[in-house]
Design a protein around this nucleic acid. Structure first.
Lengths: 260, 260
DNA sequence: AGAGCTGAAAAATCAGATCTTTATGCAGGA
DNA sequence: TCCTGCATAAAGATCTGATTTTTCAGCTCT
């Protein structure tokens, strides 16, 4: 689902350990030893150590002499690390992760839109408008994949146009959220026309430099998306959905607007 | 300024390399070789490799056989990594980093306040109110350090009370921003009373569950802070302030409200 | 109980050897 | 001339064994 492609042995070990920790298979406080990990994964010390070092820099484990590798509690993790986000989106924490990201978007994207209204280049304005037009076309034809691509292009461009590096750094994550929504069938077969209209309003407001209008229209977009997602996610307050393609029909029926 | 304390040799190498890259001493595209780094830092391969692995996971370098370690362009970095944020706050990118974080706060904290109004526990409400009272006391007495501690406690508690793990994960960074503001003398000797009043409004709105009021009051707080910081930062659009305690008087004179 | 000592466990580091990938240059052919 | 395929070597990737350093845990002595 997410590009957790890893390079080399150490990357594969990292990926497996990260998945185990985020999924809860390895709980906070559990202690691992290097030798044991060498055996478990059939690799040498150096490979294990490099993977552990990365996990340590993510705050997921701590390494102490005479003790071993201790899995850290979630409050210590760098939850903005794209790798961790990817692992969680793939595992049991998916719903919780999507909720967190949704709330985050509700705060950030309107501000990004306002900033973009002041800073976007003409080229970026063009890209935004073009993306909206593509969304309209593919939304009508019902080509959800093409719609998704245009939607991602819109949001990525907007975040980049905000002129804020950190917001731009989130574009990959936002793309993952949008893709997750589509691929988990939380989108209706034909996106709400009102969503496309709001996207167009954002694009026009950015082009005309109207920060307030851009912020407002973007807030409409994300509020609608948040509402749809919260409605769909309320029945699973805990972290144990486990199954990967669950309750499509109920979910879809409760997420009618899902307009990005 | 920020706790970039590192454990062991690999941590020190990581810290030095990270600082060099974020400061621009090592520009994007530059190629390093492991052997050269061993010699430069006087450590063995394993230490260098572990540091490189961490930098790689941060997106700051890429490692390719037959080529070497290539410094990546900033657009590829994980700008939310606390370590990178710390390096940038300590180096020439400080102003840019503070601007990014300020804009981020403007989006996130109001939403966090709204969420906290729905989710905060009674204990958290108490902590919020207590923090505001401390702010008022120390603001009047002019004890900026104690004021800062209370201010940080307020914002950390609010982000945690949002019930959103990712926002809570940013509390350390927000604390660093607030501390940076105080320690770089961007605060007036006596904080604006209106700022303290806004904090109190947030605390009360959270306690009474009024999400809209909480969001609005928090937006006031952050807007004021953003305005003050943008005003103070405009004269240095580029990334080269270098000196650590610069232009206190001019800056202070242009950041009158600086109310968190 | 509490302070200090001691042994051993486990990570941290170093160093040498070997494996794997791949940029690059050369040779041959179209 | 330009492309294609092969050989070569450079540099990271991995494995391994030895050594060092830290520090937990148990013991002793007060």
């Amino acid at each position: 689902m997410v590009d957790n492609a890893q390079t080399g042995l150490h990357g594969s070990v990292l990926d497996r350990l990260g998945t185990m920790i985020t999924s809860g298979a390895l709980g906070a406080g559990e202690v691992l030893r290097i030798e044991q990990l060498e055996a478990r994964f059939g690799v040498s010390r150096s490979v294990v150590r490099e993977a552990i070092r990365v996990l340590e820099s993510m705050g997921m484990v701590t390494s102490r002499r005479r003790v071993g590798i201790t899995v850290a509690e979630r409050a210590r993790w760098n939850l903005f690390d794209p790798q961790i986000i990817g692992w969680r989106l793939d595992g049991p924490g998916r719903d919780e992760q999507l909720r967190s990201l949704g709330e985050l978007r509700r705060g950030l994207e309107p501000v990004a839109a306002a900033l973009a209204a002041r800073r976007a280049t003409p080229a970026q304005c063009g890209t935004l408008t073009g993306a909206v037009m593509d969304m309209a076309v593919h939304g009508r034809s019902g080509d959800l994949e093409a719609y998704l691509v245009a939607d991602i292009r819109f949001h990525r461009t907007l975040l980049e146009a905000s002129g804020n590096e950190m917001m731009a750094a989130l574009s990959g994550v936002v793309a993952a959220v949008l893709a997750g929504r589509t691929h988990h069938h939380l989108m209706p077969a034909h996106p709400e026309p009102v969503a496309i209209r709001w996207h167009m309003e954002v694009a026009q407001a950015v082009q005309s430099g109207d920060a307030d209008a851009a912020e407002r229209a973007m807030r409409d977009i994300v509020d609608e998306a948040t509402r749809a997602m919260l409605g769909a996610g309320d029945e699973t307050k805990n972290d144990e959905p486990r199954n990967d393609e669950p309750r499509n029909d109920e979910t879809r029926s409760r997420a009618p607007g899902a307009g990005t």
